[in-house]
Nucleic acid binder design. Structure first.
Lengths: 158, 158
DNA sequence: CATACCAAATGAATATAATTCAGAATTTAC
DNA sequence: GTAAATTCTGAATTATATTCATTTGGTATG
């Protein structure tokens, strides 16, 4: 783990707040909102990108529109030891697997998976997960309905 | 549930693919890449927004930089009946609660929570969750490390 | 088939925004 | 305090967004 200093000031936080709300807000608008020159904002945004404060600009697409109506969470018990993430890294390579979290307690992972339907989930488990050596067991939780799905972090006021 | 036709053609899918990769890719670049006029792309993007195919443009911020190092998933058993989501909606209002999923089987919810540290999590559970009437029990899963966290859907080739 | 119709694309014109950079202002470190 | 570094401004240039009249292509219809 590297020690990194992020050192965000008030203006940085405001920029992040605006861009987290809408990643396509343009420089000029941000500048107007903060009462600064667009060039200053541009520099700051680039710096935030370089410092890996901003990781990505992402378009959230309606899963229904792409016929990915099914969401599931799967707990996976593995033979991975502490510090080893072989199984985790293999899971991460699967496109339908959106998230892979190494969790405490159970020497296992929690993964988030999107498929078209239950058939797609079964296929994934039969054809892909079963190919991964080191998986001991799985426990699947099916999402009936998503009430909230945000990626917006709480940005401190100061 | 409304019946909606999304009717995405090849060009739409390509646009989505590009924009999912980088939400800040500009119109002109997309147009160049697809060999079309920028104005045509603009129209399509606006239509995708109106049709709610594109839901949001979101900046993914490094949680460490905002001192939100702790990620947890909490299973919540509630008194909500089928079709009722009172507890779910209350959970959704909590800013630290990024996701709320109504899950099958347990008449409960799975929520994703980001806090600064374990103290922040304890605070949240003591001060906020405990205020919600109808929660029967909680089971917390702590994330040691996130191996993958993507929001990119699998976009079909055709 | 010809015609009308609709949806979507082009391309030119205009309005805005991004980007660069020199110089001024501010902050930081000693 | 002062030098060095950082950040800001504002003007100039380049590039992009946006609008819109016109064209194109597909499809239904008499």
């Amino acid at each position: 783990m590297e020690k990194v200093e992020y050192n965000l000031d008030q203006v940085d936080l405001q920029i992040l707040r605006i861009m987290q709300q809408n990643a396509r807000t343009n420089n000029a608008d941000i500048a107007r909102e903060l009462g600064m020159a667009p060039s200053a904002i541009l520099e700051r945004v680039k710096k935030l990108e370089h410092k890996s404060v901003i990781l990505d600009y992402h378009t959230q697409i309606n899963p229904d529109a792409l016929d990915q109506k099914m969401l599931s969470f799967i707990f996976i018990k593995s033979h991975d030891n502490i510090g080893d993430q072989r199984v985790g890294l293999l899971l991460a390579k699967i496109p339908e697997v959106l998230e892979v979290h190494d969790i405490a307690g159970d020497d296992g992972y929690l993964i988030k998976v999107r498929t078209s339907d239950s058939g797609g989930l079964v296929d994934l488990m039969r054809n892909t997960l079963s190919q991964i050596d080191g998986i001991i067991s799985t426990r699947t939780t099916i999402v009936l309905e998503t009430v909230k799905e945000s990626h917006k972090l709480v940005i401190p006021n100061s």
